[in-house]
Amino acid sequence: MRVSTVQIENAATILKLLGDRTRLTMVKILESQDCCVCEFVEIFKTSQPAISQHVRKLKDAGIVKETRRGQWIIYSLNKENDFYPFVQNLLQQLPNQDFKLQELEQHGLRISCE
């Protein structure tokens, strides 16, 4: 199978984007659970603007999508994206991150954005 330069460039772009630990962890979390920015702020102990920048980059690349629920914006993996199978294969190699959400819940910090 011949892989074109464009496909290699797209793969390189995605790998560069996911080369950031925070973004890679976000995507792994989103593999099993939709989240809002406020939950990521608690998980990563960083500012809302910093988290929003990470989410924006993932959204711009089409890796994540947003759904509005009232005043809240919930993020999930974009399974319709052409590169989802590539991202999914990568995520299968990573350890589960559900414990991060469970820790939030145990500390009463899991935010219900319903």
Results as ranks from 00 to 15, higher is better:
Ala12Thr: 04
Glu80Leu: 15
Leu30Arg: 00
Lys45His: 15
Leu91Lys: 13
Ile29Met: 09
Leu90Thr: 10
Asn78Met: 06
Asp82Ala: 14
Ile74Gly: 06
Val6Arg: 06
Leu17Gly: 04
Ser47Ala: 09
Leu101Pro: 07
Glu80Ile: 13
Met26Pro: 02
Ile14Val: 15
Leu109Asn: 05
Arg21Gly: 06
His54Ala: 11
Leu91Thr: 13
Leu90Val: 10
Lys16His: 13
Thr25Val: 09
Gln48Pro: 10
Cys38Leu: 14
Lys100Trp: 00
His54Val: 07
Lys100Tyr: 01
Glu103Gly: 00
Ile43Cys: 00
Phe86Ala: 02
Cys38Lys: 15
Pro49Val: 02
Gly70Cys: 03
Thr46Arg: 13
Leu101Phe: 04
Cys35Asp: 01
Ile14Ser: 08
Asp20His: 09
Glu42Lys: 12
Asn10Ile: 12
Lys45Gly: 14
Gln71His: 14
Asp34Asn: 07
Lys16Trp: 11
Leu15Tyr: 11
Lys16Val: 11
Lys65Asp: 05
Glu114Gly: 07
Arg56Cys: 00
Ala11Asn: 13
Gln106Asp: 15
Gln97Met: 13
Ser76Arg: 07
Leu91Trp: 11
Arg56Ser: 08
Leu58Gly: 04
Gln33Ile: 02
Gly62Lys: 01
Glu9Tyr: 04
Trp72Ala: 14
Cys36Ser: 13
Val87His: 00
Thr67Met: 14
Phe83Gln: 12
Arg69Trp: 04
Ser47Tyr: 05
His54Ser: 13
Thr22Ala: 04
Lys100Ser: 00
Gly70Leu: 04
Asp82His: 10
His107Thr: 13
Lys28Arg: 15
Arg2Tyr: 11
Val41Gln: 05
Ile73Val: 15
Leu109Phe: 06
Pro85Trp: 06
Leu15His: 10
Arg21Ala: 14
Lys100Gln: 00
Arg68Trp: 11
Met1Gln: 09
Gly70Asp: 06
Cys113Gly: 03
Val55Ser: 02
Thr67Cys: 10
Lys57Phe: 09
Met1Val: 10
Val37Arg: 12
Cys113Phe: 11
Ala50Pro: 00
Phe86Pro: 06
Ile63Gly: 00
Lys59Ser: 14
Val27Gln: 05
Asn78Phe: 06
Gly70Pro: 02
Asp60Leu: 04
Gln97Pro: 00
Asn10Ala: 07
Ala12Trp: 02
Glu105Ser: 14
Cys35Tyr: 01
Gly70Phe: 05
Gly19His: 05
Tyr84Phe: 12
Gly19Lys: 08
Gly19Trp: 08
Glu9Asp: 09
Leu24Asn: 10
Gln53Leu: 12
His107Val: 04
Asp34Gly: 00
Asn89Ile: 07
Arg2Glu: 09
Thr13Tyr: 09
Asp82Glu: 11
Gly19Asn: 12
Leu17Asp: 03
Val55Thr: 05
Glu39Gly: 01
Pro49Ser: 03
Cys35Lys: 00
Asp60Gly: 01
Glu80Pro: 06
Ile74Ser: 05
Leu17His: 02
Phe40Met: 11
Leu90Phe: 13
Asp82Val: 08
Ile74Val: 15
Arg21Thr: 14
Gln33Glu: 08
Asp82Leu: 10
